[in-house]
Amino acid sequence: MTPEQNPFTPAVAAAMRAELPAVAERTVAAIVVTVPSYAEAFRGDMGRAIENAVQLALGGFLQLATTTGGGDASRPIGPALEGAYALGRGEAKNGRSMDALLAAYRVGARVAWRHMSETAVAAGMPAASLARFAELVFAYIDALSASSVAGHADHLATSGRERRRHLERLAELLLTGSPAFDLAAAAERADWTPPRTLTAVLLPEARALGALAQLDARTLQAGADLPGAEPSTERAVLLVPDAEGFARAGLLKALTGREAVVGPPRPWQDARSSYSRALRALQLGLRPEDDAPVDTEQRLAELVLRADGEALADLRAQVLAPLDGLGPGPREKLVETLRSWLLHHGRREKIAADLFVHPQTVRYRMGQLRELFGQRLDDPRTMLELTIALGTAEP
C-alpha cells in the first residue's frame, strides 16, 4: 500500500485518536461482562490501570496503522509489545492460565474494531478500505496475544526453576537439622505449607521419580551428597508429608518393589530424626521381605540389636559360653531350643510345635541346657542377656 493508498488520512487518524479513551472504557466494560474472572481485578485503581493499558495498545495500533504504507502488522511497536508481555507474566504470577487473558484479547479486538471502524468511516475512510483495517486490527491483536503467551511461559519457567531450588534447599536444611527459625523461613521462601509430620524414605535415585508420582504433591526430594550417606550409594531421600496412622499403609503400598527404606513419622521440623533412622537401617543391612519396603517401625528390635554389632557378638559369645564344648550339630540344636524356650516362656507343647519335634525331645534338650547353665537359667539378668543375644540369628 503506497502513501496515496493509505486510508488512514490525518483526519481519520485524529478522529480515531480522539475516541481512544471512550473506546478503551467500552472495551474494559465488555471484557468485565464477557470474562467474569476479571470483574474484581478491573475495579478501582486496577481498572483504571487496565484502561490505560488498553489505550496504550490502541494508541500503538494507530501509530502502526498510520505509518507509511499502513505499517507492518507483524511488528507491533515496543511499548505495546512490552505491556502485553508483562500482562502474561502477571497472569502466571497470580496463578492463572492464559485462557482468561486470551478471551479478553478476543473481546477487546471485537469491541475496538466495531467502535473504531465506525469512527473511521464517519471521518472519511472509504468503506472499501475496512477490510485492510480489519486485517491490521486482528493481526495486531494476534501479535500482542503471542507476546503475552511468551511472558506467561517465561514466568512459569523462571519461577518453576526458582521454586525447585528453594524446595531443594529446604530439604537440605531439614536433613541437616537446621534451627526451627531457618526451617520456617525456608518453607515460606519455597511457598511450601508445612505438614504435621514428615517421613523419610530412602530409595535408589532411579526409583525416585516413579515414587513421587504416587505421593503427596508436597513431598520434598534430595539427591546426591546426603548427610551421613556413602558418596557412592546413589540414593535419593524423599520427605513425605503426613504419612502416619492409616496413611502409612498407603505409603508402604506405593513403595512396593522400589527397594525403599522408610523411617518413622516425625514432626516436620524434626525430619532429620526420621532420616537418621532410615539411613541407620540401610547401613545395618536390613533387607525388605519380598518386594515390600523396609518399614523401620516394624523392625525396631533388629535396629536395637544391630546398633553395635561387636557388642552383640561379644554378648552372644559370653552368654553362650556354656555351650562351647559341644560340636556344631548339638550346639545348634540346643541354641535353637533355648531361643524357642525363651520365645514361648517355657511352654513345652508350643516349643515342640515350633521346632517340629516331640515334647519329650524338648524335655531332654532342656535337661541338657540346665546341666550346662545351672542356676543361671533362673537368673533374670541372664534371661535378659540370652533374650538379647538370641534375638537375631547368629551370623
Rank of each mutant, 00 (worst) to 15 (best):
E172S: 12
L174T: 05
S178Y: 04
S178I: 04
P179C: 05
A180M: 08
E188V: 13
E188W: 11
R189I: 02
R189N: 13
A190F: 01
A190Y: 01
W192R: 00
T193N: 10
P194T: 09
R196M: 08
A200T: 05
A200Q: 02
V201Q: 00
L202I: 09
L203K: 01
A206M: 14
A206K: 14
R207C: 10
A211V: 05
L212E: 13
L212D: 05
A213N: 11
D216R: 11
L220P: 00
A224L: 12
L226K: 00
A229M: 09
E230F: 07
P231V: 06
P231E: 06
S232R: 14
E234L: 12
V237P: 00
L239M: 10
V240C: 03
F246W: 08
G250S: 14
K253Y: 07
K253T: 14
G257C: 09
G257V: 12
V261F: 10
V261L: 14
P264T: 11
P265H: 07
P265R: 02
R266N: 02
P267Y: 08
Q269D: 08
R272D: 06
R272K: 15
S276G: 09
S276H: 11
R277D: 12
L279M: 07
A281V: 10
L282Q: 13
Q283S: 13
